[in-house]
Amino acid sequence: MSDTVKNGSVVEVTNLLLQNGLWEKCQTGTFKVKAGLAQMAKGGIIMDVTTPEEARIAEEAGACAVMALERVPADIRREGGVARMTDPQKIKDIINTVTIPVMAKARIGHFAEAQILQALGVDMIDESEVLTPADEENHINKHAFQVPFVCGARDLGEALRRISEGAAMIRTKGEAGTGDVAEAVRHARTINKQIKKAKAMDSTEIYNYAKELRVSVDLLMKTAELGRLPVVNFAAGGIATPADVSLMMQLGVDGVFVGSGIFKSSNPPTRALAMAQAVTHYKDPKILANLSSGLGEAMFGVPHDKLSKNELVIKGDQSNIWNATLGSPHKTGHTSLS
C-alpha cells in the first residue's frame, strides 16, 4: 500500500487514464469478462449507426451501445450486393466520437474480419447473418478472441451451438431491415418454448433432446436448470416502435437491438429517445402511450411474408445470399447456416 492511499487523507493522482491497461497479474478476455459486458448492456437498447453524427444522436438518446455499420439492413436489402465489414476508418471515427461501447459486424465465419475489428478496439463483434456469409459451414471460433461476440439465433439449438463456440451474448435473428417484428417474436417464442420443454424433461429424455437440437447435453442441462439462456439474450430484427420494444421485453429478452427502425424513420432523434425510454418502461402502457405519441412516420417496412424472391435477389451469384441468411426456413425450404 502506498503512502498516499490512507483512510482519511486526500489522494492526489495525475494520470486520468492508464496508458497500458494490462499487466501480468490481471486476466483479460476471460468468459466472465466477455459475458460481463453483455450483462452491463441488459435493459438497454443498442442502435445501428452509419456515421459519427448518428452515433451521437444514439448516445444522446440513451443507447447503451452503438453498432457501427456501413449501411443499415434496410439499405443492404434494397441495394443488394455483397455486404461486408464496415470501413475501419468509419469505425475509428465512431469510436472517437462516443464514449459508450461500439460494436461492429463481421461476416459469418470470417475470422479475419473479426481479427481486424478486434485490433481496431471495438467492444463487441456481431457475427451477423445480415452481412453476406463468408463460410457456408463454419462459424468463427469465438473462444480464440479477447473481444466478446454476439450471434443471432432462431431457436435453442442455434443459440446453444453459438454459445459453445464462445458467443458471450445471443440475439434473435428476426427479419432485419423489414420493420416487421413477427420473425423476432417467432424466434424469441421458439427459444422460450424449447427451454420450457427441456426444463420439463427428466435426465433420460434430455440426452435425446440434446441430440435432436444438436447441442451438448451439459449446456442444455445448464439452460434447463437456469430456465433461461446461460448468456444475455437480446431481441433483434424488425423492431421499429416503442410498442415493439415492449412486446419483445415482455417476451423475456434482456434488451433490444434496433437497426433500420430509427434512422429510416421520419424523425430519428425523437424516435431514438422514445425507444430508449421504452426499454426501461416496457411494463407501463400509460408511459408507452405518451412515448409513442407524435413520433412521425415509423420506417416504411415490408411484411416479411410479402418479400418476393425478386425483390431480394439482385442478380447472378448473389441469388442465394438472402435465402441463406434472412429468409424464413419455413417458407423457402432452404437450409441455411445453423
Partner: peptide, 19 residues
Amino acid sequence: SRNFFGRQMQSFEADISLL
C-alpha cells in the same frame, strides 16, 4: 475517471486489496 482502464479489450479480472 470513466473507462479508466480502457475499452472492453482491457476489461479484466484481478484480486484487489481490502483496506
